[in-house]
Design a protein around this nucleic acid. Structure first.
Lengths: 209, 209
DNA sequence: AAGAACTTGCACATGGCTGTGCACATTCGT
DNA sequence: ACGAATGTGCACAGCCATGTGCAAGTTCTT
């Protein structure tokens, strides 16, 4: 929707635009309904200036969603682990490491108004997760007492919850989300502790149960 | 804060007040920020009439929280199971059964503005849960890789998430929240499936692992 | 230094929600 | 049926947020 003649923007303008998205990310992480004024102020700008970069609030929110989704999807597509359990673990850990970037989209994802946009933006991540779950249920390493679709949602909601509620808490490492996700995926806590203590170099068929 | 001379309210007025809280419960379950107008309308009243029953919005919200908390706490205090695992299972199942009543407070519980009030109202439930977790970690039936406080929060957030996202979904029984909560508590899915298949009549020391 | 891009600071219209006042109708209790 | 309690319908003020217009500054670019 940008003008066809893309003139190369002034340097400070580009920087300010970036700052806006950055601050919006932080503010939205706290409360997806923060006012534009707060965001602009956090970026060292005026509310009025925001409308120089984005036509309306919706556009700014969308920019935040898209930036988050980019990170998500890039991670989902560059997983190295072959084994489903390893993949799930790696996915969780890397999402957690990027949580600061990703938290905002995570919060917005709960806002009904942006649900369609979010769903579209996160489609690749969800597809990858669905693939992992399918493989895991097939090999028996993931729980089979709930259907694949439900398990995907369970994992997603669990990861979202941990990222939203524990990110920034003191003494919280990536271990917590990993433990939570693998738990919800069906593993016993001893099994998980074992995995964390003896990391697989490359996942073959892991020990039964 | 009611006047010392409690005149016995007209019958219809009492009914309308009840309806208001009921409808507020339903509406808040969808969106904790619904307008008073919608709630009043749902109760067959006018927005103006609301102010005949509650001094302001805050009072109505508080009434909803308190009603929900009453249910919560009553359940927490009448658990029959002795064994921690059984108690956790029973607690989850009974909360789920009352989910329709409880959903609103659950949604409001996420609203920062009412966090103090909610925390106070739910204190008994949290205390009971803490007690269950302590006992379970002592006997070894609950996970020990996270500290008690974190585990309590994990269980609480998991239950909240399932109630909020799955309540009302078709083909969803109380089994799902139970499976989720016991999973996050550290049990393997096979162990859980086993428990659900062979319900204990009364919990002694259950099978190891 | 000059021109363009960007920002500010206002003012204004708009829309939604809350909380209140008041006259009038309705409904309940007895 | 009478009086009091309750609900209605309106009007109003206040708050807060969005989105726009415009004149005046400031800062980048070349």
């Amino acid at each position: 929707m940008t003008t066809s003649t893309d003139r190369p923007l002034r340097r400070d303008a580009a920087h300010n635009r970036d700052e806006l998205v950055n601050c919006a990310q932080r503010e939205f992480a706290r409360d997806p309904r923060t006012s534009l004024d707060g965001i602009a102020r956090a970026a060292g700008l005026t509310r009025r200036a925001v409308y120089g970069h984005f036509p309306d609030r919706h556009a700014l929110v969308s920019a935040v969603i898209d930036r988050g989704a980019e990170h998500y999807n890039e991670i989902a597509q560059t997983l190295t682990a072959a084994d489903p359990l390893d993949a799930l673990q790696e996915l969780t850990r890397r999402l957690w490491d990027e949580a600061s970037v990703v938290q905002a989209s995570t919060a917005i994802a709960l806002d009904e108004a942006y649900l369609p946009h979010t769903a579209r933006a996160l489609a690749p991540l969800r597809a990858r997760l669905a693939q992992i779950v399918a493989a895991g249920q097939a090999t028996g390493s993931l729980r089979r007492d709930v259907d694949a679709h439900t398990l995907v949602r369970l994992i997603e909601e669990t990861a979202r919850t941990i990222i939203l509620r524990w990110c920034g808490a003191p003494d919280t490492t990536a271990d917590l989300p990993v433990r939570a996700v693998l738990s919800i995926a069906g593993l016993s806590w001893e099994h998980i502790a074992d995995r964390l203590a003896n990391p697989r170099t490359n996942g073959g068929t892991p020990d039964a149960r």
